[in-house]
């Protein structure tokens, strides 16, 4: 572990085909944390406090989105760290990888429209998981989504258990936090946009692309600050 009295260190894993890694590095640095880029071939992790699997198209989405990256050498170490309670965040393709690895429940299927969806989206916090204690349930966030395979599904009979165990993190919603079919961009079951399991969290929206009002929203900044456990005013 790195020195907790100093800046927290966030490891950002780069797979072949990741393309949101540098945005994520900049977002983490903007929050005053240290970002280290980790190669997918590493068998062991350097000292880090947090891990992010960024968005992109690892392995060209071959076979299934995230399926090949889920078997990358570094994922054994990720699994071990998650088991010991390290916060792990998967964004978009990172979410797909964590689902394929079995570190998060469910799977992400192609959007029923057959289209790549790239738009602003409001999501509401259903159940703030471990690490997001500063984010109240019901908080509505404005974040961009950009994906082809974002339709979240679970095995038959698993949905109720996800809600019962507080694993439903985010739902696609309207501006007031109402989650209904009209605001479901990709046919995800129960409008689910993000889930958690232990210290592992995954979401389809891109908080690292919503770091300042001039980009359209700074809700991603608040989201990542909450995840890093930062409070109060964060310097831009």
């Amino acid at each position: 572990m790195s020195d907790h009295t100093a800046q927290p260190t966030v490891g950002i894993i780069v797979f072949p085909g990741s393309n949101c890694d540098q945005d994520t590095v900049l977002a983490i640095q903007a929050l005053g944390a240290r970002a280290v880029v980790l190669d997918y071939r590493l068998a062991e992790l350097p000292p880090v406090d947090f891990l992010i699997l960024p968005g992109g198209f690892s392995y060209g989405d071959y076979l299934r989105s995230g399926a090949l990256a889920a078997a990358a050498p570094i994922m054994d170490a990720v699994e071990k760290s998650a088991a010991s309670g390290m916060p792990v965040l998967g964004i978009c393709n990172g979410f797909q990888i964590l689902c394929e690895r079995g570190l998060l429940p469910g799977a992400l299927l192609p959007n029923p429209s057959g289209e790549f969806i790239c738009q602003w989206q409001t999501v509401r916090v259903v159940n703030a998981p471990k690490g997001f204690e500063t984010m109240a349930d019901g908080t509505v966030l404005r974040l961009p989504i950009a994906h082809h395979d974002g339709s979240y599904r679970v095995a038959e009979g698993q949905l109720a258990s996800l809600f019962e165990h507080g694993q439903v993190f985010l739902q696609y919603s309207d501006d007031k936090g109402g989650a209904h079919a009209l605001v479901n961009p990709n046919g995800s079951v129960a409008n689910i946009a993000g889930v958690s399991q232990g210290s592992v969290v995954g979401l389809m929206p891109h908080p690292e692309r919503a770091m300042a009002q001039y980009l359209g929203s700074d809700d991603g900044r608040g989201f990542l600050a909450a995840w890093l456990g930062l409070r109060g005013n964060v310097e831009c």
Partner: peptide
């Protein structure tokens, strides 16, 4: 077949 090759490489790694 790039997808096949990438999948072969991962299976070999496994």
């Amino acid at each position: 077949d790039p997808a096949g090759q990438a999948t072969r490489n991962v299976l070999q790694h496994m």
